[in-house]
Computed example of a mutant assay.
Amino acid sequence: MKRLTIADIADAAGVSTGAVSYALNGKPGVSAATRERVLRIADSMGWRPSTAARALTRSRSGAIGLIVDRPAQVLGIEPFFMQLVSGIEAALRADPSTALMLAVTDDRDAEIETYRRWWAERRVDGVIVVDLHENDSRAGLLAEIGLPAVALGHPQSAEVPCVWSDDEGPMAEVVGYLAALGHRRIARVAGPAQFSHTLRRNEAFARAAETHQLEWSKTLYGDYSGESGARETRRLLSERNRATAIIFDNDVMALAAMAAAQEMGISVPEQLSVLSWDDSALCRLVRPAVTAVDRHITQHGVLAIETLNEVLAVGTAEHRRVPAPVLMPRASTAQAPN
């Protein structure tokens, strides 16, 4: 029999999982009438809080942790994390007693040590884990020390619930869109190769290139910084049989690429089409505006908090998938040059 979750109660009551969490834990954020209705429905469905969840509720620190293992200079300019934090803060707004604790570390060992310290000192109630690697060891560690967690990325195990979005379908759509514009030489400048989402996109890109029988396709790697985007763009555009379209794994690299192309006398989109995997205000404000994939990053943050609230309330939660990403065609892509 499937275990009853906070999401089941939310569906039956017609409210959000966050509202159910507040009601079950006696926290502010819902009206008295809603609290009474949620408790009545939960009782009728046979809900019983786990011992671990009750213990966590009695000793809340009032903080949710987020550790980012990225260079500080990259984090400071990348809209992805601004949008993610915006979603997290929006979800936390209903509960003024809970705040976000953000830390930036230099490497994975420092990140793991920070998790241990936070939990030993009870400085956080739970954490949001980002930038999953293949066979990521952090899930096992967090389960071992008992630190409640939610990960952003494709599910890898049942130890930590994940909030994730599809990479394969959007990549197939992006390559198909460029192929329909006549592009036969398409390159991709990805993020760090060790990230699991990079590997999934690599595989999807290779399959799509084969499906559309491209003349050639290749993937180079950057670190999400403008410097790496410009550097790999110059490398691609210096080739004799150069790419006519480049897909970038974030908006910062895409914008830097357009500047690098201009330096080399290559016009966008007449001679080179540019596409960003992440959408942001930057993509809409520059000229030409950048074609991008809207992955609903703010919604990732909202769902991460709702899922973590469920873990804190009942001790477990299921993986959640955000709405499907949407391709947003703009002026940086056009018919391939003859």
Rank of each mutant, 00 (worst) to 15 (best):
Q194D: 15
Q194F: 15
Q194G: 03
Q194E: 15
S196P: 01
S196Q: 14
H197P: 00
H197D: 10
T198I: 07
L199K: 14
L199C: 05
L199Y: 06
L199D: 06
L199V: 06
L199M: 14
R200Q: 13
R200F: 02
R200M: 11
R200D: 04
R200K: 12
R200E: 13
R200N: 08
R201W: 01
R201C: 10
R201L: 13
R201D: 06
R201I: 05
R201M: 15
N202W: 01
N202V: 06
N202G: 04
N202I: 05
N202E: 15
N202A: 14
E203H: 05
E203P: 02
E203K: 13
E203A: 15
A204C: 07
A204L: 05
A204R: 03
A204W: 01
F205D: 13
F205R: 15
F205V: 14
F205Y: 04
F205N: 13
A206Q: 12
A206Y: 00
R207S: 09
R207V: 07
R207K: 13
R207P: 00
R207Q: 12
A208M: 08
A208W: 00
A208F: 00
A209C: 12
A209E: 07
A209W: 01
A209S: 15
A209D: 05
E210Q: 09
E210V: 05
E210G: 05
E210P: 00
E210H: 09
T211G: 02
T211K: 13
H212D: 06
H212M: 08
H212W: 14
H212F: 15
H212T: 09
Q213I: 03
Q213L: 11
L214A: 06
L214Y: 08
L214T: 07
E215Q: 11
E215N: 06
E215T: 14
E215K: 07
W216E: 09
W216D: 07
W216N: 10
W216S: 10
S217D: 10
S217E: 05
S217I: 03
K218V: 02
K218Y: 01
K218N: 04
T219F: 00
T219H: 01
T219G: 01
L220W: 01
L220M: 13
L220I: 04
L220D: 03
L220R: 11
Y221C: 03
Y221W: 07
G222E: 11
G222C: 08
G222Q: 09
G222L: 05
D223I: 08
D223Y: 02
D223V: 09
Y224F: 15
Y224W: 15
Y224P: 02
S225C: 08
S225L: 06
S225N: 09
G226S: 14
G226C: 09
G226D: 09
E227W: 01
E227I: 03
E227H: 02
E227N: 03
E227F: 01
S228Q: 10
S228W: 01
S228M: 08
S228P: 00
G229M: 10
G229A: 13
G229W: 02
A230C: 08
A230F: 10
A230K: 10
A230M: 04
R231T: 02
R231A: 12
E232P: 00
E232G: 00
E232Y: 00
T233F: 09
T233D: 07
T233C: 06
T233W: 05
T233R: 09
T233E: 12
T233M: 11
